[in-house]
């Protein structure tokens, strides 16, 4: 049974998840609300990773940096240029998209591990520039902005603004991956040579996929600028890309909505762990190792496989 192409069980799960994200913030203290806000923002980053890693079959390690470009531009616009936050966010997303286009031109010809290596190196360029271009980026000290408008200063109104934005973005991304274009991407993932001989312009498809993915990462980065009001080189560091990828994989690559589960699991883990130890990076690395060995399909991917097996 499917409705609009989604199995009934899946639809119920999505509605339940959305309802939970809508209601729970009313019941928990403000600290947890801000964690949930972070979960929603990072879910968008993880979904943008999933477009490339899950649907186009190329694992990117630069989207955290593109996310950070948007954060930097937004914060810079509101602090140094004293511009309006919304204009800053638009500029941030624009800058992220532009960077993604440049990266796409360079990276789309590579596949497999070469794609990982190249995107990793490209992301590091951004990190290097943010760290060294002290006159603009503030170097290691970072930039403090005034992005969040007064009417959204409280936790709850801000949460629901992010919730609404993320709902719209998620719908757009879902349409994107289910469109004929998204199906072509999956075709390229499964067999690039076959798609090429069928007459598809593989490079152009990869370019568009990369750009769209960068655009959404930029949206997440702009929201993060509003959430955090501060940016430093750690926002564009490799760990950011790694976390985004880990969330996408934990949720289940190629499932899109798994990103929410992944973001919730990883950020939840981060906050739980930080109560006991400062060694979050070790826990992150360990999680990566364990997932790669035992659960490469991720949570949602694993559930799907289980269900498929049960149905025989």
């Amino acid at each position: 049974m499917t409705i609009a192409g989604i199995p009934r069980l899946g639809l119920a799960a999505i509605l339940f998840g959305a309802l939970a994200f809508a209601i729970v913030p009313l019941l928990v203290p403000s600290y947890q609300v801000s964690i949930l806000t972070e979960v929603l923002i990072y879910a968008v980053l993880a979904m943008s990773v999933d477009i490339l890693a899950g649907y186009a079959g190329r694992t990117p390690l630069c989207l955290g940096a593109i996310f950070g470009v948007s954060t930097y531009v937004t914060v810079y616009w509101t602090s140094t240029m004293a511009g309006s936050p919304y204009m800053g966010m638009v500029l941030g997303v624009g800058a992220a998209t532009l960077v993604a286009m440049v990266f796409a031109v360079l990276a789309i010809r590579t596949t497999g591990v070469y794609f990982i290596l190249l995107t990793l190196a490209l992301g590091m360029i951004i990190w290097g520039i943010c760290l060294r271009w002290t006159s603009v980026t503030g170097g290691e000290n970072g930039l403090r902005g005034s992005v969040r408008p007064a009417e959204l200063a409280a936790h709850l109104p801000f949460y629901y603004m992010v919730f609404a934005a993320v709902a719209v973005i998620t719908f757009a991304m879902w349409r994107f991956v289910r469109s004929p274009f998204g199906l072509t991407l999956r075709g390229i993932r499964d067999s690039e040579s076959r798609m090429r001989s069928l007459g598809y312009n593989v490079s152009l498809h990869m370019f568009i996929a990369f750009t769209v993915s960068g655009l959404f990462a930029g949206v997440a980065g702009a929201l993060y600028a509003m959430f955090n009001d501060f940016v430093s080189p750690s926002t564009v560091a490799l760990t950011q890309s790694v976390e985004g990828l880990l969330m996408a994989i934990t949720g289940g690559a190629g499932t899109l909505f798994g990103a929410f589960i992944g973001a919730f699991a990883i950020i939840g883990l981060e906050n739980a762990v930080s109560l006991y130890t400062e060694r979050w990076q070790s826990v992150l690395g360990l999680t990566f190792i364990l997932i790669m060995i035992f659960a490469p399909e991720g949570i949602l991917g694993g559930i799907k496989t289980l269900l498929a097996r049960k149905r025989g």
Partner: peptide, 13 residues
């Protein structure tokens, strides 16, 4: 892919 990402985790740890 799993090898690459596993070594990434090892590097972090």
């Amino acid at each position: 892919l799993r090898q690459v990402l596993l070594t990434l985790g090892v590097g972090l740890v």
